[in-house]
Write a protein that binds this DNA or RNA. Sequence first.
DNA 1: GCAATAGTGTCTCTGAGACATTATTGC
DNA 2: GCAATAATGTCTCAGAGACACTATTGC
Lengths: 242, 242
Amino acid sequence: MSDDRWVPPTVLLAVDLVILTLRKSCLHVLLIERGVEPYQGALALPGGFLGHEKEDLVTAAHRELAEEAGLGPDQLHLEQLGVYGAPDRDPRGRVVSAAYLAIAPRLPEPVAGTDASRACWTSVERALSGDAQLAFDHEQILTDGIDRAREKLERSALATAFCGPTFTISELQEVYEAVWGVPLDARNFYRKVQSVDGFIVPAGPSRKTDGGRPARLFRPGPCTTLHPPMMRPLSQADRETA
Amino acid sequence: MSDDRWVPPTVLLAVDLVILTLRKSCLHVLLIERGVEPYQGALALPGGFLGHEKEDLVTAAHRELAEEAGLGPDQLHLEQLGVYGAPDRDPRGRVVSAAYLAIAPRLPEPVAGTDASRACWTSVERALSGDAQLAFDHEQILTDGIDRAREKLERSALATAFCGPTFTISELQEVYEAVWGVPLDARNFYRKVQSVDGFIVPAGPSRKTDGGRPARLFRPGPCTTLHPPMMRPLSQADRETA
DNA sequence: GCAATAGTGTCTCTGAGACATTATTGC
DNA sequence: GCAATAATGTCTCAGAGACACTATTGC
């Protein structure tokens, strides 16, 4: 096990991004059509190698976020998802990837000001349905990212990151329904989110254009963790129950 | 931003382990006194560089687990914690560390068969109390590991990983109390864990030596996720509530 | 008026928390 | 018998879910 003068192996470090947003009441992820080998022409998560020797991981994530998606660091949730380092995950050699999960508010149009404009929002349903073969192990990373988002909606105020600076309770409900993939009772949801202290706070008198009664506007509250948590109706849970 | 023939920087990849166990009703972590610079003499999490170019991350974690703690892959929970890659976290250069969280059942004696036998179980209270200055960013990694364990006790059957193949409900309660740092009502705990379907299953008639009535033995059940979750009494939660 | 969406009230039932009580061991 | 621990029962109250109802807009 011990050679003389053993030197640890070096690896290439990449950063990959799972960028989620809501479009037309559906959860979407930003994918990029690869222009070069390997996996040329296939869809992949935005990402890239570390820019330079001294670049921090989060900094690299923000850089890719700006370069490939035109998204600035403001009004955007970013958290680390994990590291993916299977020896054969990249045919070019040993590439270890730090994956980050980003949540973007509803954007009017598909990624304004994108540099590599092969980027496109894809519904997660399509992205994971095997139709669109994702490059590398990006299907796994995407799955993990969505799972993380689903879990964090329960105990954290992450849902507000899908919305703009102000939002209505219906919009917030739309987020939960889209990410969890289940319908929720509007009345109970209304009561629930208001009862969780510090989750959302009123933001001035209301205004909305929908055809019905105007809805009140809210802003994200000071609390990041929800007590008690939002409860997700069990969907895959019953499978585990023998 | 674009040199001719830009080459992405390479990094050294390390694996660090947060190994938690219960000793004397207290949560303990395995720390190792460093024998070489940097941080010679300081306490650090067990870990090391990737063994060779083709070694998988989890494999490396298991290898370190065996080498530095004498712990085999059986009867041991291991999950990824995250990646730590601040540019200045290691004075030797750019070292990016994949952190893993391991949960070991109560061991009779301190790390039998340890190779580098500078390893010692340290109570997390001591490890985090600033007294024992941990090397690198290991205090942060340890904090994250404990937080992860605390969270996962709520929604997963992770607590059973702290116990042997069979255990009593009191032993399981000890785990929750030690990891969460709060006392729990034995009667309510008893009712609760039994009511969560598939969490624990009876394992033959009981036998225990304590002086009181013998307790029934249980094994981990088939369910990994708990529905409904175990509820942790709020401790830091009230701080967030304005 | 009607349709549509926002917001409120009320009921029920599950489950968490706070206890008292009974059961089974060693001494 | 007593001490100690295991296991069960009972009560109350908070909160999730189901659903009827009222309020405010555009037409």
